[in-house]
Computed example of a mutant assay.
Amino acid sequence: MTNNSIFDWHKFHVVGCRLYESGSEENLRTAINRFYYGSFCQARDYLIHNNIFYDEDLKNDLCSGKGVVHEATRLIFLKEKRLINHRQGKKIHDWLVDLRDYRNRVDYNSSTDFNLEFMTRQSKIYSEKIFNTLENL
């Protein structure tokens, strides 16, 4: 790997797909995590590389490298006029919200009182939609 290379976040999606195929609880939980982070990082990088920040505060949050970057990314997709006009920004926002919710549930909740198979399948679908939508913007 050279210093100028950029990581391909879609590889996290691919790892998620492999984990999903195994079907074990620990792999399904990890798959959801990979689907979220691959999609989130791809969305964040899209905004940064295209200089789409909505306002200065969200730009600072987006580029901070701190926890606020997750919310900033979602809010920019929700509020930015260039993305709203394409009607894709809100969709990406909504998919990221759901992916984040699923990730939080499986990463922080020891309980198994949720449909893990459904959440993993939906995470895979939302992740695919985010990658495809960003590619076509």
Rank of each mutant, 00 (worst) to 15 (best):
C41E: 13
Q42W: 05
H49E: 12
N27G: 01
T30F: 10
N104A: 03
L99P: 00
N27S: 13
Y126G: 05
G89I: 04
E25P: 01
K59H: 02
G65N: 03
D98T: 14
V97W: 03
N104W: 00
F35G: 05
S64Q: 08
G16P: 08
R82D: 08
D61V: 00
K11R: 14
F77S: 04
T112Q: 03
F114L: 02
Y37H: 11
Y102P: 08
D107A: 12
L116D: 07
F131H: 15
T120W: 02
D98H: 06
M1S: 14
G89A: 10
R74D: 00
Q122A: 07
G89M: 08
S111R: 10
F35D: 10
T112R: 07
D61F: 02
S110E: 06
N60D: 01
N85P: 02
N4T: 08
E135C: 03
V106W: 04
E128A: 11
Y126S: 10
I130V: 15
R87A: 11
W95H: 12
E117K: 14
E128P: 00
S39H: 07
E71D: 13
I130D: 01
I52Q: 02
K79N: 05
F118K: 15
T133H: 05
W9A: 00
I125K: 12
S39R: 06
L83N: 11
S24F: 14
T30D: 08
K90W: 14
L47P: 05
L96R: 00
